Amino acid sequence: MTTLVTGAAGFIGTHVVQHLLDTGRDVVATDLVPADDATGLRGVIDDPRLTYVPGDLAGQLDALLPHVEQVWHLAANTDIPAGATDTGVDVRSTTGLTHQLLEALRRHPGRDLVLTSTSAVYGERTGSASETSGPLLPRSLYGAGKLAAEGLTSAYCATFGLRARIFRLGNVLGGGMRRGIVLDFLRKLGEDPRTLHVLGDGEQRKSYVLVDDVVAGMRHVTETTSGPEHPACDVYNLAAGGSVSTREVARLVAAELGLDGVDVVAEQGGLSWPGDQPVVELVVDKARATGWAPTCTAPGSVSESARRLLAEQAVTA
């Protein structure tokens, strides 16, 4: 099978490409950046089973889709706070791009879609969120853009006979990250090992999950629910289960640095940025029912991510 991966040079995208190659697939990978700048793919860029196509995705779809059997769509805006200053970025880079892909899939039928979404679609909740939780009222424009992409995908499946699996991901961690809480804390503690300033009140809780578990989960669920007895379009949460507070993330990262007694200082009350969710805790029973299970707990995902990032820093130092 040949699979098209969009957003292939991003954090999750690079792991998807590696995983699919490891499982014997041929991969056509696309991203805006040229191959020389796709640093996360350097280990596989010369693999003969990988074709890397840089440039704007929308203009390439009609040429690429006839040569693939499946599409993993990860290309989107990934800077969540950015929508507060550029209110069109999620419309252009997430919802609009997904619409262009769906139109191309309508012109080239028979290719299943794997769509990455986010826990941000659930908005503010006092408890855990399952796939049937509602109403869905995102707090961020990022979450709104992802939810709109989900809605378009569902409608195209019902109207034009497409098939899709939508995955609402927790906060994904691992090696190769270029932003995020674990990398931020490692950098700050490297500068000041005694005091760590955090955004918000430090009590925000997120559903952290290791990128390996996310990628394996998407492939497993997609493969085990591909038969005609399953819905044409369906949605699954993917996370490690449970949640971890910002203060606990700080403790776990400090422990990987061999630090004890770090003073965690909350710089402000409330949320980290406009649109942030105070609590995210995903229920993953539906994905587990297919036979998938995460290999790492939420706290373990934080610790393992810190270890991998530290190892990468040691290699590049």
Rank of each mutant, 00 (worst) to 15 (best):
219 R>E: 11
241 G>S: 09
191 E>F: 01
237 N>P: 02
186 L>W: 07
200 G>F: 08
262 V>G: 04
290 T>C: 05
175 G>W: 09
173 L>S: 00
293 A>C: 07
203 E>H: 15
284 V>T: 14
189 L>G: 04
270 G>E: 07
192 D>T: 14
275 G>N: 10
190 G>F: 12
275 G>R: 04
182 V>T: 02
211 V>R: 02
223 E>Q: 14
167 F>H: 00
244 V>F: 02
229 E>T: 10
212 D>G: 05
171 N>Y: 07
282 L>M: 12
211 V>I: 15
254 A>I: 11
218 M>F: 08
204 Q>P: 11
293 A>K: 11
296 C>Q: 10
295 T>F: 04
185 F>I: 03
207 S>R: 08
208 Y>Q: 10
263 D>N: 10
242 G>Y: 10
276 D>L: 08
223 E>C: 03
168 R>A: 03
269 G>Q: 06
271 L>K: 08
238 L>F: 09
230 H>G: 01
273 W>M: 13
279 V>K: 14
241 G>T: 06
168 R>H: 09
295 T>L: 11
201 D>T: 07
210 L>V: 05
184 D>E: 15
292 W>I: 00
282 L>T: 08
171 N>H: 06
256 E>I: 09
226 S>A: 15
217 G>A: 04
246 T>Y: 03
247 R>F: 10
246 T>D: 01
177 M>E: 11
223 E>A: 13
258 G>N: 07
284 V>G: 00
269 G>P: 12
